[in-house]
Design a protein around this nucleic acid. Structure first.
Lengths: 218, 218
DNA sequence: ATCTTTATTGAACAACTGTATAATACACAA
DNA sequence: TTGTGTATTATACAGTTGTTCAATAAAGAT
C-alpha cells in the first residue's frame, strides 16, 4: 500500500525511438497522414506528446524515420524469403513474388504506410531522397537476378526494361490490391506475377526491339 | 475615370465550381494534400476563402469533387484516343497504352493528383467509394477489349486475370515514373506495355493454369 | 431608375497543429 | 541514503486550419 506505482517508466533512447516509429506506422496505416499528429502518435505509443520532440527533431523527422524503418523492415522480410529459396535466379525471383504477396507480415497495414510515403515523395525533398535510395537498392537486386537468369537461360533480354517491368507489375498489383482488397486476392496477384515470369523465362518477352519497329512503320 | 473597376465579377455557380476544382487540382499537384488549404485554393482561383464554402459543402467535399472531375477528365482523354485508333481490339489496346504515356495532357501534374487520392482511399470512405466506381468502369473497358482480342485471335485467355495484369502494369509504370521521373522515360514505359501486349497476342500469357501446376507440385 | 436576387467578400471564430519550456521523477551511481 | 543525469510529463504558446456569418455589391429583372 505504501508503495506507489511509478508515473512512468524510463527507457533507453534507442528503444523509445523504435516504439514511437512503430506507433507512427500504425497511425499512418489506420488514420492516414492527416490523422497522424503528435498527440495521436504519443497516445498510440502510450507516452506524452512532449516526448516526441525529445527523441526526434520534429514531427517531419519522425515520419521520415518511419519511412526508413519501414523500408528496412520490408527488405528484411524479402531477404529472409530469398535465403530460404532455391539459389537459382528463377527460384529466387519466384520466391520474391511469393514474399511480396503471400507473406503474413506484408499485410495491408504495413504496405498501406507505403502509400502515404508515395504521396509525400512528389512534394517533400527529404522523402524523395529516401525514396530514391530505397528503390535504387530494390531495383539493383532485381536487375542482378534477371541478368543471371538471362545468362543462364541464354535469353536476349533488355534487363533494364525487364527490371522496370517487373517492379512496376509488382507495385501495381500490390497497389490496387491495397486500395480495394475486394477486387482480387493476394493469390491472384501472385499468380499473375508468376505467370509473367514464366513467360519471360520462355523467351517471349523483352526480346523484340519494339521501338525500332515503330520507327520503321512510320 | 469616374468609372470604378468592379471589386469582383460574378459568375454562374457551375462555372465557379469548375474554377475552384481546377485550382484544387493544381494545388494538389504542386503542394500536395498538406499544402492544399482553403486559402491556398482560393488564392489559386483568385477568389476569397469564403467562396469555397458557398459552392461546396466543405473542403473535404471540394477534394472529393476534384477526384470525380479528374477521373472524368482522364476518361475523356482516353476515349478520344480510342476513337482515333484502329477499331480492332489490338489497335484499341495499343492506343490505350500510348494515350496513357505519350499524351501531353496526361502530364505528371494531372497524374500526380491521382497519387493524393490513392493515399486517401484507404482511410476516407467517400474517396474509397469514388475510387471503386472509377476503377470498375476502367477495368470493364479493358476487359471488353481483351475478351474481343481473345475471341479474334482464338486465345485461351483468363480475361479477368489479364485485365488485372494490364491495369496493374500501367498503374505501376506510371506510378514509379511519377515518383521519380529520372529513372525512366514515358517512352520506356510505353515500350514495356506494348511489349507485354504483343506477348499476350502471341499467346504466351495467362494461358497456363499456374495454380493447378503449383498444387500438383505439392 | 429602382428593386431583387445572390454571388462574393472579409473578418472573426473555435479547434487543432507542431513546438518550446520548466517542473518532475525515474533509474542508477556513489 | 544521497546525489546526479536526463527521460518524461504537463502546460503554455504562436500559427494555421476549416468554418461561420453579416455586410457588400454585381448583374439581371421590372
Amino acid at each position: 500500500m505504501s508503495e506507489r506505482a511509478p508515473k512512468f517508466t524510463r527507457d533507453l533512447p534507442e528503444s523509445r525511438r523504435k516504439q514511437l516509429i512503430e506507433a507512427t506506422a500504425r497511425s499512418l496505416a489506420r488514420h492516414g497522414l492527416d490523422g497522424t499528429t503528435v498527440r495521436v502518435v504519443a497516445a498510440e505509443a502510450g507516452v506524452s506528446p512532449g516526448l516526441v520532440r525529445h527523441h526526434f527533431a520534429g514531427m517531419h523527422d519522425l515520419i521520415a524515420e518511419t519511412y526508413r524503418w519501414t523500408g528496412k523492415e520490408l527488405e528484411k522480410v524479402l531477404r529472409a524469403a530469398l535465403a530460404a529459396a532455391p539459389p537459382t535466379p528463377e527460384g529466387q525471383l519466384h520466391a520474391f513474388i511469393d514474399a511480396s504477396f503471400l507473406t503474413p507480415t506484408l499485410d495491408t497495414d504495413l504496405l498501406g504506410v507505403w502509400l502515404t510515403f508515395w504521396s509525400l515523395t512528389r512534394t517533400d525533398p527529404e522523402i524523395h531522397a529516401i525514396h530514391q535510395k530505397v528503390y535504387a537498392s530494390y531495383r539493383r537486386r532485381i536487375d542482378e537476378l534477371l541478368s543471371a537468369l538471362a545468362a543462364e537461360k541464354k535469353l536476349a533480354l533488355d534487363t533494364r526494361l525487364a527490371t522496370l517491368a517487373f517492379t512496376a507489375l509488382l507495385d501495381g498489383l500490390w497497389l490496387e490490391h491495397c486500395l480495394d482488397a475486394a477486387t482480387y486476392t493476394a493469390e491472384d496477384a501472385a499468380t499473375i506475377a508468376h505467370d509473367w515470369l514464366d513467360s519471360l523465362v520462355a523467351g517471349n518477352f523483352m526480346a523484340t526491339p519494339r521501338a525500332a519497329i515503330a520507327l520503321n512503320a512510320k
